[in-house]
Design a protein around this nucleic acid. Structure first.
Lengths: 107, 107
DNA sequence: CTGTCGTACTTTATCTGTCGTAGTAATTTT
DNA sequence: AAAATTACTACGACAGATAAAGTACGACAG
């Protein structure tokens, strides 16, 4: 099991990555994370939705309502230019973080 | 700069790693982290000392007073068997975490 | 036609770890 | 004599994760 304290700080990055491939909404993103990681990481609902509002507040994503005429209305999210830049920054940071933590890990 | 949210959850592991090499105390551990990471990661004092008390509460480390006859008295820490097991567990977790996060990172 | 399951999301409240600020205390360097 | 270094403690604030519960709609089984 992966402790949430580790991925904390990368949940936003994970969401942005999935939005790079196209607009999406909560439930779909959640399912994509599960399938991509083969259930090794499952983002909790509340974590996901609170990440959305944080990302939107920071203008890394924008939201709009879907056109579904049936079922519950979806809130779609689109990554912004600022979001793309942030994502790239986090990718660079990740490479550094890996190097740093690796120094304290024995295989 | 490495954001603390990323390493959060590995601070304990970093401390345990350094204690594997022998008993030590706050200030020394702090300096060792700086030098090992070439200042790329600097653990804040308060973070460090609060990690000590958490680790001790969980019986991953034990403390004892140093014998210095001068200077401020040091609190030394020793890793326990339970601490060693926890450390190994975190190492395995780290390998999995790397794999998971890497799936969402573009170089 | 009722209950359950799957989809999709919201609200509230709590917990944990980090960190800013400040203070204590002794020694060493300038 | 002042400033820097060593070594640690106390307090309070904050952010992100999460548990629990609820809302809302459609589909499908019995």
């Amino acid at each position: 099991m992966i402790s949430s304290d580790v991925i904390r700080g990368y949940n936003d990055t994970i969401i942005l990555y999935l939005l790079l491939a196209g607009d999406s909404y909560g439930y779909e993103i959640s399912k994509n994370i599960r399938s991509i990681t083969k259930e090794e990481y499952v983002m909790k609902e509340t974590t996901l939705y609170s990440a959305f509002s944080r990302l939107e507040k920071n203008a890394f994503i924008e939201s709009y309502f879907g056109e579904e005429t049936q079922g519950k209305r979806r809130t779609y999210y689109r990554i912004t230019e600022k979001g793309r830049r942030y994502y790239k920054e986090k990718c660079r940071e990740w490479e550094l973080t890996k190097k740093v933590i690796n120094k304290f890990i024995e295989e």
